[in-house]
Simulated assay, not measured.
Amino acid sequence: MKDEAKQRIRESFDAQSMMATLGAQLTGIATGEVIITAPVLPGSRQQQGYGHAGLTFSIGDSAAGYAALTTIPENMEVLTAEMKINLLAPAGGDFLRATGRVIKPGRRLVVVAADVHAVTGDEDVLIAVLQGTMVPVPR
Rank of each mutant, 00 (worst) to 15 (best):
S58C: 12
D122M: 10
A63N: 02
E82Y: 10
V129T: 15
R139D: 09
G106Q: 11
M83L: 15
I35P: 01
G93S: 06
R10V: 15
A81K: 14
A30T: 14
F57P: 00
N75W: 03
A15E: 10
S17R: 14
G106H: 08
S17P: 03
P138E: 09
A113R: 13
I127L: 06
V102C: 05
D115N: 13
I59T: 05
R10G: 01
I127S: 06
S62V: 11
M18K: 08
G60T: 07
M76T: 04
I85T: 14
A53R: 09
M76V: 03
T70Q: 00
S58M: 08
Y66V: 01
A113H: 06
T21N: 12
R10M: 12
G49Y: 09
K2P: 12
N75I: 04
S62A: 15
R139H: 07
A63F: 08
Y50A: 14
L96K: 11
L55S: 05
A67Y: 01
R97D: 00
A98E: 10
P42Y: 07
G60L: 05
T56W: 03
T37P: 03
A128K: 10
K104S: 13
M18V: 14
D14S: 13
V78L: 10
M19Y: 06
G43K: 11
T31C: 06
M76R: 12
E4I: 06
Q48R: 14
D61G: 03
I127A: 04
A15V: 02
T21C: 11
L87N: 05
A98G: 09
V125C: 07
A68N: 01
L26Y: 01
A89S: 15
A68W: 00
E74Q: 10
Q131C: 05
A98D: 07
R97I: 11
I36K: 03
L26C: 10
F57Q: 08
G92A: 12
T80G: 12
G106I: 00
V137A: 05
I127G: 03
F95T: 02
T120Q: 13
R139P: 01
E77P: 01
G54R: 03
S17K: 12
L41R: 15
V119Y: 02
Y50H: 13
E123T: 15
H52I: 09
V78F: 09
Q16T: 07
P136D: 08
T27W: 02
V119C: 10
A15Y: 00
M76C: 09
V112L: 01
M1I: 06
A20M: 08
M19E: 07
G121A: 07
L79C: 11
I9K: 01
V116H: 04
F13R: 04
R97Y: 01
R139Y: 06
G43Q: 14
F95W: 12
G106C: 03
Y66W: 14
A128Y: 10
A67D: 01
A30E: 15
T70P: 00
F13Q: 05
G28W: 02
Q46N: 15
L88S: 04
G60D: 08
M76F: 14
P73F: 04
R8W: 03
I59S: 13
L109A: 13
R108N: 15
D122H: 10
G54W: 04
S44Y: 00
A118I: 04
R45N: 00
R108M: 04
P138Q: 10
A114C: 13
D3C: 03
L79G: 10
G23E: 03
A98P: 00
A20F: 03
